[in-house]
């Protein structure tokens, strides 16, 4: 077997595309895309649950709900097809300076597609 070079674009296509779209449109001073799928009842290597941290000047004077709507809209395709859960931290650089401790998302409780049935079967 030939050794394979890890490539974000092909191995984590959803994560790559999320990062690219948010970076292109929001010009963030800080961005982090965290794949939290491993915390859930999905196959290993899945790209279904994400947390995004976006720090951008473009959020200035924009309410939190509208910041979320901006990001949801940019990631509309991903949310329709692959992404099942998206946790969003959207801050301005000033807000980010004051608070940069991010808590991990809560653990799954089984309500994803068939996994309730899987749990019942166990």
């Amino acid at each position: 077997m030939s050794s394979k070079i890890f490539n974000k674009e092909t191995d984590n296509p959803v994560e790559f595309s999320i990062k690219e779209k948010l970076t292109d449109s929001l010009n963030p001073s800080y961005i982090e895309i965290i794949n939290e799928s491993y915390m859930h009842n999905v196959p290993k290597g899945s790209e279904t649950h994400f947390k995004v941290i976006v720090v951008s000047d473009k959020f200035k004077d924009i309410s939190l709900i509208e910041r979320h709507r901006m990001i949801n809209k940019l990631l509309n395709d991903e949310l329709k097809c692959n992404v099942h859960a998206l946790s969003i931290v959207a801050k301005t650089p000033d807000q980010w300076k004051n608070e940069n401790t991010i808590t991990p998302s809560p653990p799954c409780r089984g309500g994803f597609g068939n996994c309730i049935q899987l749990r019942k079967l166990k």
């Binding site: 859960a85 946790s87 998302s105 809560p106 653990p107 799954c108 409780r109 089984g110 309500g111 994803f112 309730i116």
Partner: peptide, 15 residues
């Protein structure tokens, strides 16, 4: 939400 308040079936709903 997913599930009911006494037994949420998703961490976000539980929160």
């Amino acid at each position: 939400m997913k599930g009911v308040p006494d037994s949420p079936k998703c961490g976000f709903s539980n929160a």
